[in-house]
Amino acid sequence: MKRAVYSLIAAAAIILANGCSKEYELNKSIFIPDPDFPELPAYTEWGYNTFGAYYERGLFLYSENAIPAKIIRAGGITSFVLKGQKDGYGYHSWDNRKEMSVTFLLPSVMPDSYADLTILDKKKIDLVNTPGAVKLFLDGDTIKPDILQGELEFRRVQLLYVDSKQTEVILSGVFSFQALIKDEPVSVTQGRFDVGIGEDNFFSY
């Protein structure tokens, strides 16, 4: 009887210990507020899986309910996708009607795996002189805006090893642009991202 009780306690302890495991932490988002724009995540380089920008005066922000960033290599084109919400109720919520994504074309970048993304380190992409550089999903529509001016900058790209094991690539950078959307000039400002790209969100097909 005693042995059974001890076994039960041991099993409960193991289950509790596993329940508290933080292995998932690298995939989750951690919001550190920007000191100047507290609605936006601060610019960081830790792979906190966050991004944010102002779309006009509204907020374009990641959500905990969607994978915030993907790298997609398909049909000879590589894209960097940031998916979140415009004017949502914060990063805890999700509303399909508020879904917004920005897709940046990465010219002459052909990674075979996420580890190859280190070639983006310190790379700046002029969004005006790159045809089809930006694609938006906004108000239920996919839009290819005319970019008036703007830039995407990968300030730091790190191949991350955790306990000496290759785990993911951290992409950290900033973006902003002005564009004509449905003949109306709009601006996206103060854009920043700090996202991890690993086996789960690197796609090649």
């Binding site: 933080k22 991350l160 090893y161 955790v162 306990d163 000496s164």
Partner: peptide, 20 residues
Amino acid sequence: SSDFFYLLLRQEETRTDYLK
């Protein structure tokens, strides 16, 4: 503690090492 945190051990060019 049975829990862990990530410690930045070093950063060399584009390689970064964390330890649990």
